[in-house]
Computed example of a mutant assay.
Amino acid sequence: MDLNSLCYLGLGLISMILLIYICIKSDVRLALLTFIGMVGFGYIVEAVIYNFLSSYQYFPHIIKHEPVYDSALGAIASNALTLPVTATFLAVFRKNLLWVAFMIALYAGIEWLFLELHIYKHYWWKIYFTSIGLCFYFMFAKFLYHKLNGPLKGFLHTFCLYLIISPFSGSLHFIPIMFFSNRYYEFGLFTNQAKDTTAFASIFYLSASLVYVLIAKIHPFPLWVKYSVTGLCMYSATLILSHVGILHSLVWWDIWYYIALSLLCLLFTMYISKSLYKGPLTTRI
């Protein structure tokens, strides 16, 4: 384990400790929903600026066999832990603008340090882009926390539900690809196979998450129909993508894993959907 790994793992450990503190000192349900929602929001932003616009690269030196996947792991560490935990902290404890400014300055300093240590690299991105983006990111966390503090209906229910379930879907979609090379995508967006896979995986999970939300919110159909349709959609998507040459499965369990994942995501989506309808005082379905 080198300096790169220690820096990223250190940030991750600090973030986990802070998340535990937030859960202990506040409504754990509301804190976790806000945290996961901010992970989802960060994933969407990162899909645009990192996956498709190639803004920067991370060097955590954890995944040795593929630098693109190693960089993606660094992006996940940032957007699934460090930034959403900080945003949740600011929102849950209702910190004022001075706190927000301090956190933005702190992350600008960390970004500068990572650049100086050559464990992170800019292409066209700038530190002040991060600072401006974090201002909106932290303000959105306060908005999300406020909305999650009551029962949700209509568009806000759908929007928040999507933000919460999409990172669950996305992480479990891509992590096996990074560590086990069970599949790759050949969509033609990038010449580098791993980069192309990373970009198309974002399109896949964002689209799949929308399907889970839509199926979960269709009330007249019984559960067995919803699960059957979800599994069939994933199976059909896999066959179609394989037939047109976009998806290349490399292990026998690949298709079965993603069918099982789709069913698990639907279960999680329906649970969160009912929780958002009922509001913060409900601790069970």
Rank of each mutant, 00 (worst) to 15 (best):
M103V: 11
I36M: 06
L223T: 00
Y58V: 03
M270N: 06
D196I: 12
T198P: 05
P60T: 03
L148C: 02
Y235T: 06
T269A: 03
V213Y: 04
S171H: 07
W125Y: 15
M1W: 13
A72G: 10
I24A: 12
M38Q: 00
F93T: 08
L33E: 09
T197P: 10
F59C: 06
I177G: 03
T88F: 05
I246Y: 11
A199L: 10
P280Q: 03
V39W: 01
C160A: 11
Y235C: 08
L250W: 05
L97T: 15
R183V: 09
L97M: 15
H122W: 07
L172V: 08
F41V: 06
R183Q: 07
E46C: 09
F59H: 14
A201D: 15
Y120L: 07
Y184V: 03
C23S: 13
A194V: 12
H243N: 13
I177K: 07
K153R: 13
E46D: 13
T283W: 14
L106A: 15
A31C: 02
A141T: 03
L206G: 05
P67G: 03
G74C: 05
P60Q: 01
M16W: 12
Y212L: 08
I119S: 00
L261A: 09
M270L: 05
R183P: 00
G245L: 01
V225R: 08
F155N: 04
C135P: 03
W124P: 04
S169Y: 10
L239D: 12
F136W: 09
L33I: 06
L156I: 11
H65W: 15
A199G: 08
S71C: 09
L276C: 02
L81T: 07
I110W: 10
Y21K: 14
S55P: 03
Y128F: 15
I49C: 06
D254K: 05
L223N: 10
Y205H: 12
L152W: 02
P222E: 00
A80E: 01
S131N: 00
P176E: 01
G245R: 01
F52R: 04
L281Y: 11
L113F: 13
